[in-house]
Each structure stands twice: as C-alpha cells, then as structure tokens.
Write a protein that binds this DNA or RNA. Structure first.
Lengths: 143, 143
DNA sequence: CACAGAAATAACAATTATTGTTACAACAAG
DNA sequence: CTTGTTGTAACAATAATTGTTATTTCTGTG
C-alpha cells in the first residue's frame, strides 16, 4: 500500500486550526492548512469533510468561509481522529474461507481474531491517552 | 489497499505445519498448506520463504520436499511472525515535508511520532503474549 | 542415469487504497 | 454582482496484496 498518513494529516490539520483560532482568527481555510501540511487543498477538504461528519469540525461556505473546531483541542484525542480516518481493523482475517474439512481451517479464524481484538484494544488505549492539546503543547515546547 | 491478511496466513501456515509434524509427518508441502488456507501454493511459498529468511522454518527441495518448523510452536510468538511479514510502521508520517516556516509544520512530526512509537510498542506487547502453541490449543479446544 | 515431485522464481493481471491534481458547481458575504 | 471558498466529481499515478501461470532447479527414488 502506499504510506498511510491519514491520521498524521488529520491531526496536523486539526492542531493547526486550533492554534490559528487561539491566535484570534475566526476560520481557517483549506488553502492555509494545505500550505502547512504541504499538500493539495482538496486532500485537506476531503479529510476534514470526514471529520465534520464525526462532529469534530464545522465548515462555512461562501466568501470568508473556512473551518472551525467543534470542540476544544483538549477534548479531541488521537483515538477520536483515528476512529474517523482509519476505520476497519489493522489485520484482516482470511480473504477466502479456509478449508472447513481441516481442524486448523475451522478454528484458526476465531482463535486469531481474539488476539487481534486485544491488539486493537491496546492500540486504542494508547491513542486515547493523547489529546490534540498534548500534541500542540509538545509542538510549541519544541520550538 | 487490499485487505492485509499476511499475518493471518502466515500464522495459519505455521500452525498447520506444527500440527502436521506433531501427528508424525516429516514435512508439509505448500500444496497441502494452501488447501487448508484456501489459496494458491505460490502464495504460501512466498510467505514461508520470508519466514525462512527469519529462521522460523526450513525447506527441503527435490522429491519428498516441503517445509518444517525450525522451532517448536511454543517458541514462536505472533510478534515473531509479525516482525517478518509486516515490517514498517502502522502509521506513516507526512509523505512530503511540512512547511518549515510554520510552527506546527516544524514540530508536528516529532510530536506525533512519539505517540506512534508508544502505540507500536503496545501492539508488540500484545502480539508477544501469544505463541502459536496458544493458537493451536485454542484451535483444538474449539473443535 | 532417468524420472517424478516439489520448491524457487519470474512475470503478469486484478483489485484496492492512498495521494495528488484539475475542473467546476454551489454558496454566501460584501 | 463579484469574489473567495467549500463541495464534489473525475482522473491519473503509485504502490501493496493476492492470485495465477509457466518455467527452472533441485533431490530422492527406482
């Protein structure tokens, strides 16, 4: 697969909007965000559009339009973002059903899925520990 | 990307070889394994070839050839397998370098990478907790 | 030595996700 | 009405996974 930087780009975008608003601006445009991220504005709009669907950001249209956070940075965890931009499991089970006449073929699916579920849970616990406020703090501290 | 079932197929293959050997057989052919997994033998050979490079299996060529485990199932964790078949991080950073003239552009990479590292570590801890012996036990218990 | 069975390997197509890009429609502030 | 920006569609480029076919290489056995 090509590199999957959706979570990175989404977190970057939200953090940028948060800092921009904190500095007194009303709305951030996808053009501005794209400049900081170094990508195309449409990429930003697509991602932020998904995040809007999850209630993390709002958008205004028309002249003077742009994006605003729906919640404070401190109320958005990386897990919140991850859930939106990376749905679906990290590991897939078999693409085709394994041989039902084989013990291993019959039992391996459920057996390994139990492990995958634990792995996902551990991942989510880690992602939930960090808010975008934490990220912004680290960003500013490193400057 | 297409579904990533490499870890699942690899674990299935190794578990199958382990059970087959435990039942008194010398070597397992990719044809047999492919039947249980329900895929093409070449897919199995490719994966097992990578696992051989990591010292998890051996292969014999010629007539009566096939695959054998290099270690007991109890000495192979899912992390061992994962390391071989899914190298590289779960989350990628930016594809293109973010704007160095922007505070967020400068700092977001290291800030978020620290989180990603913690997530990977948590994932690996979980994967290391399960051996293929555990998997086989669950498989047989469910039968 | 010849044969047969199986791995080793190369090559290709199909599918899919991500990313970047262009173009244009929809919309709202002034 | 003009202008700036989102909303959206459409497309290409890239890349990874998976499946498949075909061919070569190796080795045990008769």
């Amino acid at each position: 697969m090509s590199a999957n930087s959706r979570l990175t780009i989404a977190a970057h975008s939200l953090t940028w909007i948060g800092l921009y608003q904190r500095r007194g601006h009303e709305v951030a445009t996808s053009e501005q965000i794209a400049t900081s991220v170094n990508t195309n504005p449409v990429v930003i709009r697509r991602l932020l559009g998904e995040l809007r669907g999850a209630g993390l950001v709002d958008s205004r249209r028309g002249a003077g339009a742009g994006w605003t956070l729906s919640r404070d940075l401190a109320a958005i965890t990386l897990l919140d973002v991850h859930r939106v931009v990376e749905p679906g499991p990290v590991f897939a089970l078999h693409r085709a059903t394994p041989d039902p006449d084989c013990v291993v073929g019959r039992g391996i699916g459920p057996a390994i899925k139990a492990v995958y579920d634990d792995v996902e849970a551990a991942m989510q616990r880690e992602l939930a520990r960090t808010t975008l406020e934490d990220v912004l703090r680290d960003v500013l501290a490193a400057d």
